[in-house]
Nucleic acid binder design. Sequence first.
DNA 1: CTGAAAGCGCTAACAT
DNA 2: ATGTTAGCGCTTTCAG
Lengths: 348, 348
Amino acid sequence: MQKDKEVTIYDLASALNLSIATVSRALKNDPVVNKQTKKKIFDLAEKMEYRTNHFARNLRSQHTNTIGIIVHELNSNFINSVLAGVEKVTTEAGYDLIIAHSSESYIKEVANAKNLFEKRVDGLIASLSFDSKNLDHFKVFKDRGVPVIFFDRVEQEGNNTVVIIDNYKCGYLATQHLIEQNCKRIVHITSSLKRNVYSDRFKGYRDALFDNAIPYDENLLIINDLSERAGIESAMQILKIDPLPDAAFITNDFVAAVCMRTLKENGIRIPEDIAIVGFNNDAICTLVEPSLTTINYPGIDVGEVAARNLVNHLKGIGNIQNTNTIIIRSNLIIRKSSLKKEVAPEKN
Amino acid sequence: MQKDKEVTIYDLASALNLSIATVSRALKNDPVVNKQTKKKIFDLAEKMEYRTNHFARNLRSQHTNTIGIIVHELNSNFINSVLAGVEKVTTEAGYDLIIAHSSESYIKEVANAKNLFEKRVDGLIASLSFDSKNLDHFKVFKDRGVPVIFFDRVEQEGNNTVVIIDNYKCGYLATQHLIEQNCKRIVHITSSLKRNVYSDRFKGYRDALFDNAIPYDENLLIINDLSERAGIESAMQILKIDPLPDAAFITNDFVAAVCMRTLKENGIRIPEDIAIVGFNNDAICTLVEPSLTTINYPGIDVGEVAARNLVNHLKGIGNIQNTNTIIIRSNLIIRKSSLKKEVAPEKN
DNA sequence: CTGAAAGCGCTAACAT
DNA sequence: ATGTTAGCGCTTTCAG
C-alpha cells in the first residue's frame, strides 16, 4: 500500500460536520463533550486510522509527557531491575520513558543529557557514569525547571535529590561478616573511590576493620573497573600477596564471580582458603560454585521510589525540592562463598 | 533559577537582524548560508542557550529521524548485544533510538507497536514476544510505508525482511556434538515450538538424531519458558526419567546454568553423567562449573546488520523489499560441560 | 546569499 | 455542548 496522507482532526471534523475543537476535546476524552458525539468521533478515528500527531500536540502544549533516564550500562542485572521499577511507575502514570546509556563514558553521558534535554523530557532520572567529572550537564535541566532525580551513583553535594542505599553500612556489614568468619586479611576489590557508592563501601570496610582492631592494609585494596578483565587481574593480584589473604569483599557480583573462577583455577579453595562476599545479589550468585554471599541491592525498589517521587513532583503532589536523600533498604545475604564457620546458610 | 522563556529562531533572528529563514538554514548547516553569518548565528545560539524545538521541526518536516526497536526482554545478554549493535549503527547514521520491550507479552508488544507508530518512528526493528499470535500490529507500519525488519524471533511467512541465524543448523550441530561424545539419550529443553527459533533448533536436533540412527523419543523433549523456575523444573523432570538421559541440549544458557546447578545438587556429575550444551554464549558460560558448551549467537552482528539494512533503506541506498532473509554466522563453542571424551577444548 | 510567507496539526482561550 | 481563532517554532517554496 502507498504512504497515504495522514488523517488529521480536520478530516474527522469535516467528515462529521463538527469543529476541530470538539474533535480535539473528544480525543482527549474531555468530559465536556457529549457522549454520543464522542463515540462517533472515536469510531471514525478508528475507522480512518487516525493517529495523534504528538509533535503538534507537544509543540502546542509545551510538555512531552516523557521522562528520560540515563544509566551507565544496560547489561547489568541491577540496572535492569531499576529500569523495571521505573517503568512500572511511569507507565502507570501515563509517561513515556526514553532510556539512554553512557557505556560508562562521561562524554556519552553529557551527550545523552543534551539529547534528552533537546527532546524536552518533563523529568529526568540519572545515575552517573564511571568517570563523570561533574554535574554541569544537568544544570540546564534545573535552569529550565526540569526536575532531576539521581540514584545509585550520585553526588550528594549540592541540593540534588538522590535515591541510594546505605553503602557505608553495607560495606561495614559485609566486612563484619567476614571478620566473624575469623578472617583477618580481607582484600577489598572495588572501583573508583571518587564515586560515592565505592568510597562509602570502602569506608564501611575500613571502619569495620578498625572496630575489630584489624589494621587497615592498603596493599589489600584493589581498584579496577567492573569488567571481566578486572576480575581476572584482581584475582592474579591476590595470588601474589604474601601471605595469602583469607577473604575478599568485592563490590560487584560479576567481578566476584570472575575472580572466584580465576582463584579456583589456581587451586584456591573457596571459602576455605579465601572467603568471598560480592555486591548486588545478581542472578549469578546462585549459579556459581560456591554460591555467592552478597549484599542485596533491590534495584526495583530504587527505580520505583525514584520514579514515584519524580512523577509526584511533576503532578504537583509533593515536591522533590524538599527531599534530599532517600535511603532504600538493603541487607546481607549469606551463602556458601563466605562460610568458613559452620552456620546454616539462608535458603537460596 | 526560573523557567525562563525558550529562545527560538525568532529571537536569534531579531537579535542579529536577520530573517528566521536564514537562521533556520544556518542551524541546519545549509551550505548556502554565508560562513560568517553562520558563525555569528551559531555563536549567539550557544550564548543564548538556544535549543532546537524538535516538535516544530518534525511537525513541519514530517519525519522524526527516530528508529524504534521492540524486544522481548532487556535483561538478556543476547538482547543487550543486539541493542549495542543497533545503537552503533543508528547513532552513526544520526538516528535516535526508542527501545520498547514487551516482557514476553503479546499484549504489551501490541501496545508497544502502537506507541512507536504514534511516535512516528521512521523505521522499526523487532523481535517477537514469546506468545505473539500474529503480526497484525505491524501492518500499520507497512501501510504507511514505514519499513520493518525482524530479527531472532520472526515469522518467515509473508514477505518480511528478517535477520536470523541458521537455527536448524545450530540445533543439528549441538546434537551432533553430543552424539559424538557417545551420548544416545539426549534431552532437548526448549521453549514454545511455535516460535521459529525453537522449532528450527528442534528440527535440527531431531534430524541429527535421525541421521545417527538414534530414535527420537518424545519423552526427552521438555518445553518450558526461559525462567529460573523452568530450569529447576526441567532438571527435576530429567531426574525422573528412567534410565537417566546422558545429555541435554538446552536452548538458552541461563536455563542451562540453572538446570546444571539443580542436577549437581542432586548428585549428577556433569559431563560424566549428563553432558550439557546451551545456547547463546552468554558471559555466564565460563562462570559456571563446568564451563558451558554452547552455540555462539553473535547478537552484536545481528543488531548491526538489521540496523544497517534499515538505515540504508531509509536513506534510499538499497531497499529491504528485495531482501527476504539475512543469515548471520553462528557456531558451536565446545567447553567442558559436554566433553565426555578427552578432547582439548577450545580456549575460553 | 537572504527574506517573506504559508502552513505542519494541535490546544486552549474565548465566544456562543 | 460546540465553534472560532490565534498561535506553538520550524521548514520550505518562491522571490528577490
